[in-house]
Design a protein around this nucleic acid. Structure first.
Length: 579
RNA sequence: GAUUCCGUAGCUCAGUUGGUAGAGCAUCUCCCUUUUAAGGAGAGGGUCCUGGGUUCGAGCCCCAGCGGGAUCACCA
């Protein structure tokens, strides 16, 4: 691998540390008794507690002024300034801890442990006066340097932000080190999940785990990822949903079960879609979808409060208020509200005409349900910014939902829409096994007609229903989508630590072993790499005289005094070894 | 999958009509004991994403590819 100048320098510092008897990767524990946040919050109130502190973290900046220096230490809670003075950390005649270890062998990005006491500088910044420090981990790759100023009114301005999305997502660890707001987003996400988990557990529902590898993929309409189990010699699918397994547990007699589930869908990617994503699904016996709407309101309102201390959350240009009660529309009402057209009594042909009139793209394969869904998706959903429940969906779109108790052709289903996007989906679960079988068979028909997202028929699930599932309300919440809203993130990639990406291309380069095998001495390898001879093919075509000259010249240029120049015969030997 | 924009130093980014590759930060050397985007003096650092083409000459123009972003399509 080709190293940059800065990387080479850091490797040399690592060697120098070892030579001077300092382990750059020590194993003893380093006792920490305070955090940066703690100091900022509590020092003024209780100064005597901060006379003898011990803290560890990553060195994020250095300002060296001769025999004194300022630096910034970053731990998991934030940053704190450090003050090093040579005469304090080197009390005797030996100044090497300051002059050599700190000034020469320590870099931004190194992880260090500090002992000292807190004071306030002349400019009023809380600072740790360092009395002793220890290198805990040497960092070999230079971090992006992000700088920040703050004006009188506290407005922050960032210079040289680490902002390239590709590098940020590929090297999330760097993103987390240098961008504190990214760290915060993921803390918020976990707070949200914890809030929901606590809420559901406190209601007495049981958190469970169900299979991710499934012999049949069910519970949603989506294309699956397919894999193979060698011992059983069978196809398995990564789950697209866990709905059918959770319902089996309701059949088994639990009153309420929920699971935070990673689901996998082999479909397009966008800022709202990642191939793997998280849903929480909940099933509660003896309840219906109206009851479930109340629960969703209460639960999401509480999540907002737990995360922000308020129900009002700023998302882009909007402020979204999760305070109960949320608006409730039936799907037909909502369409009438936003288009002025009542489609509740329309047949397929009229719906098609209406869609055309509203200039919505449709095709002939669309049935009644799909047409209604298109009109809704085009004319209503994007306009629903504040949390809103939409109820009573067409039966064609909902093969697992119970038929509406009063309205023909509809099911007892609702979605909550927020910021123009669905955040949850719920229904009174279909528990009539005969009806369920017919719905599955209708899906099979769709599949035969080429709909590769149609549901498959799950005989075991039907068998479970035949034993009898109590009336049940079910819910699925897209955790990533909700986290996007709650953290004001534009893209799902900003709420997933490691969003899916194509692999980085690795240029094909010769390994050290390859070079050695054609007779190149190990110490000469960096020279060849520096000259661009990164593959054996390139050496194959080299002119031996030129290569000989270039190698000797580069040795001089790189100041590799300890390296012995090759002889011309040696160089000729490499080339003939490849050919 | 389609359209479109982007890819230059470790990081953030300039780069004129096609004519020897630039800045700030970071790095290295030196000065500096309360600084804070610390400061001062000096130095080094490049596969201009990859591969072709046009040209006397390409970071720049043309073609193809790779990677990424945005929009759309798909997608409960």
């Amino acid at each position: 691998m080709q190293l940059s100048e800065q990387e080479t320098v850091r490797r040399q510092k690592r060697e120098a540390l070892i030579k001077s008897g300092i382990n750059p990767y020590p194993s003893e524990l380093f006792e920490v008794n305070v955090t940066a946040k703690d100091i900022h919050e509590n020092y003024e109130k209780n100064k005597t507690d901060y006379k003898n502190i011990s803290i560890a973290g990553r060195l994020m900046s250095r300002r060296i002024m001769g025999s004194a220096s300022f630096a910034e230490l970053q731990d998991s809670t934030g940053r704190i300034q450090l003050y090093f003075r040579r005469d304090d950390i080197c009390p005797g005649d030996d100044n090497s801890l300051y002059n050599d270890v700190f000034k020469k062998m320590t870099d931004i990005g190194d992880i260090i442990g500090i002992k000292g006491y807190v004071f306030t500088t002349q400019t009023g910044e809380l600072t740790i006066h360092v009395t002793d420090f220890k290198l805990l981990t040497k960092s070999l790759k230079p971090l992006p340097i992000v700088k920040e100023t703050e004006d009188e009114s506290g407005n922050k301005k960032v210079y040289d932000a680490f902002s390239d999305p590709e590098t940020r997502y590929r090297q999330r660890y760097v993103d987390l080190i240098v961008n504190p707001e990214v760290r915060d987003t993921f803390i918020k996400r976990t707070q949200m999940v914890n809030s929901i988990r606590t809420f559901l557990s406190n209601k007495g529902y049981l958190e469970v785990e169900t299979p991710i590898l499934q012999p049949l993929y069910g519970g949603a309409a989506a294309r699956p990822f397919k894999t193979h189990h060698n011992t059983l010699d069978m196809t398995l699918y990564l789950r697209i949903a866990n709905e059918l397994y959770l319902k089996r547990l309701i059949v088994g007699g639990y009153d309420g079960v929920f699971e935070f589930a990673k689901d996998f869908r082999n479909e397009g990617m966008s800022r709202f879609h990642n191939p793997e994503f998280t849903q929480v699904e909940l099933y509660v016996a003896y309840k219906d979808y109206n009851w479930m709407m109340d629960l969703v309101e209460e639960m999401v309102e509480k999540a907002a409060l737990d995360m922000h201390g308020t129900t009002a959350v700023k998302v882009g240009k909007n402020t979204i208020d999760f305070q109960r009660p949320w608006k409730r529309y039936t799907m037909f009402e909502s369409i009438e509200e936003f288009t002025g057209i009542d489609i509740s009594e329309m047949e397929e042909d009229q719906l098609r005409d209406t869609a055309k009139k509203l200039s919505i793209d449709i095709d002939d394969s669309m049935g009644k349900g799909k047409l209604i869904d298109e009109i809704f998706g085009e004319k209503v959903e994007p306009h629903l910014i504040q949390p809103t429940f939409i109820t009573d969906y067409p039966i064609e779109m909902s093969p697992l939902a119970k038929k509406h108790s009063e309205k023909e052709g509809l099911v007892e289903r609702f979605e909550a829409i927020c910021n123009g996007k669905e955040i949850c989906n719920a229904f009174s679960e279909l528990n009539d096994p005969i009806d369920q079988r017919e719905r599955f068979e209708a899906q099979l028909e769709l599949g035969k007609r080429g709909d590769d997202e149609a549901m498959v028929l799950d005989e075991d699930f039907l068998r479970a229903l035949e034993y009898g599932m109590p009336p049940t309300a079910g819910l699925g919440i897209g955790i990533d989508r909700l986290a996007m809203i709650m953290t004001n993130s534009d893209s799902i990639q900003d709420v997933l630590f490691f969003p899916q990406m194509k692999p980085e291309k690795k240029p094909e380069v010769a390994t050290e072993k390859d070079y050695v095998e054609i007779g190149v001495r190990e110490e000469l390898i960096p020279i060849l790499q520096n000259l661009g001879f990164t593959t054996l093919d390139k050496i194959k075509e080299a002119n031996p005289n030129k290569l000989f000259n270039d190698v000797c010249g580069t040795r001089k240029k790189l100041k590799l005094k300890d390296v012995k120049n090759p002889s011309k015969e040696e160089v000729e030997g490499w080339i003939s070894a490849v050919n």
